[in-house]
Write a protein that binds this DNA or RNA. Sequence first.
DNA 1: CAGACAGCACTTTTT
DNA 2: GTGCTGTCTG
Length: 783
Amino acid sequence: MADTAPLPRPQGGPITSQLKSRQPKFRAAVDYMAGLNPEQREAVLLTDGPLLVLAGAGTGKTRVLITRIAHILLQGRAWPSEILAVTFTNKAAREMKERVNTFVTPLPELQWMGTFHSISAKILRRHAELVDLNPNFTILDTDDQIRLIKQLLAAENIDEKRWPARQFAGMLDAWKNRGLLPKDVPPADSGFFANGKGGKLYYDYQARLKTVNAADFGDLLLECIRLFRENPEVLAEYHRRFKYMLVDEYQDSNTAQYLWLRLLAQGKPAPEANICVVGDDDQSIYGWRGAEVDNILRFETDFPGAKVIKLERNYRSTANILKAASTLIAYNEGRLGKTLFTDIAEGGEAISFTQVYDSEEEARTIGEEIEQYQRQGDALNSMAILVRASYQMREFEERFITLGLNYRVVGGPRFYERKEIRDALAYLRLVAQPSDDLAFERIINVPKRGLGDATVKMLMETARHQRIPLLQAVRLMVQTEDLKPKQRSTLRALVAQFDDWAYRADSLPPYQLVEHILEESGYMDMLTADKSVESQGRKENLKELSRSMEDFESLGGFLEHISLVMDRDSADSGDAVTIMTLHSAKGLEFDTVFLPGWEDGTFPSQRSMDESGRAGLEEERRLGYVGITRGRKRVRISAAQNRRIHGLWQSAIPSRFIDELPPDVVEVTDRGSAYGGYGYGGGASSRFNKADPFESVYETPGWQRARANQANRRGSGPLTIEGDLVARSVDLGNQSSGYALGERVFHLKFGYGEVIQIEGNKLTIDFEKAGTKKVLESFIKKG
DNA sequence: CAGACAGCACTTTTT
DNA sequence: GTGCTGTCTG
């Protein structure tokens, strides 16, 4: 992925026909076709011409891709360097490479197997000058991007409060995802931001990237597309090179990626293109990030004569789990329509749905269940908790810590996103690429050197006037009298240090270089001096960084790796329950899957429905489908009746998706009702037909039930407005004003207390232990 | 220039 | 409830 070694050319020209008579270069290490079912086999053998493999969850699509690559190599249809294999994550690319390696010997060097972004970066570095960059250009992370935008906003006198940099970053991203260069942005789009300045900002932003010799993630694809479009001879080179193209998770591709692929596939007329895409429209869960399900839906139009193979035989889950998942997903429209079936594990355990009082009880219940399964002999590794949003994770973590239950959180704050890592990287970037102004700005005063805004401003002024990088500006400024003596000597020393580091970078291995830099810059001293709890951890992270650099010989190679491969192999912490979001669970599987928080508003997420309406709801439903199909043997769904969102207690009703599950495979338990909440009415209304009978989001059974419930409450007391949020009371209406001032009451969370104020159904209570709090009447009981 | 407090915003996430 | 950012003050 990140190897910067020179690219070996494919030896020899077309080999398809001749090679059969020759000694094949690769041999099969194992019987690689063994165990494939007829559909999978067909998908492997149909190497030529466009092919769409629609693979439902757990049907072995990765297996097909890998075997296909092995087959192409073993048949001598192409050299490894002639195969383009694209994935979305580095993890997927790594796994694929490893698994092909187990099939084929000697080890093929699949240098064009990687993510869209890493492959694009590789191509761009080879032709950097054609897109106005140097081959050693920096790849910016989101942090740098935001800082750059802030500078542009300031330069344009745009109020950052009214027009946040984040928002603009989001728009930029969306434009780039759609493959739009500054000149292509529709006026309606560009006019929206900052009273019409959006378009200009995009131009300025791109210009600025070129001056600092950098590209952001979107650029990697966008500039690649521009490169291909403006330089047909370059494109033709890749047409000649790539004999076979394979794409994983095609349903997640966005417009830019689609254009990128289409350009590369144009080497042959569409009906003959050797392109194979694999995906599952039902698992498209990245629409909010610009993914276009349409790409997969229209593959057959893009490549006339394309073969379509459906993989529907599921090897993962029990029949009950598959039935639940299929029934749920059938409520979506616009599907390519697959039905999963299995010939293993008839029936199996029922899907369980449990209603609990609040998220704390949810964590407690799940904790107990996990321990029980563990006692029965299940490994913690075989269990996972899949949440909709990461804020749901904390409750589980806290509970598991109390229980002493080993857990691991996947996808928390990423290693590379940590402040200290970014600081260290900024030093390294500046050593490798002295014109990296963003890196310079990041570390000029970290650790504190007494170089504040005033000094930086002066440097930036000079840099802009002379059109030179900041580090260069420093060199100039220390020669003048413009700076105060103190700053001047500090800067002079700093420049000298950087020169020294740059000099040593050639001889020292990167992992030693970084240690020297951190020591000599005073960064380590800064952490030592910092007595806060985190600083020790930060030091350890930096050690970890240095350790991770041991595999790299050159600084450049390491930086490429770190900016593109941002995932970190989570150190296996032995047997542990996994906690992660539904999004990051795609592609994984567990014996037992817990799906907490199935409440309307949480899942499906209110925001998703508000922002994207029906499409949003359908994406949420696909997320539910992904969640359920992660389970091999057991799926346990739960919903809390009360949940605190942004510090505010909210009552909730079970997710409408519960009603969309087939009742005959769902077993309902209601623990929440013990506390006087309303019970689960039962999805027993049994509407589980194939087509979605509901015209709009608001006509699904869950929604209607919610409306009915709300109406009930409306009669019993006013809705309470707190902030912008409407707090819905769980009061069923039979005890609307049943409390008096001074009355002793009990609250499940806060304990006993005395009512000191009443406003409608909101009571102010002086709790014995928790102090004075305002709570909804329905959350308390008479003491 | 640096530390302290107040205000606000707060899905999902890879690259 | 929390964490970040931005402003105020020493």
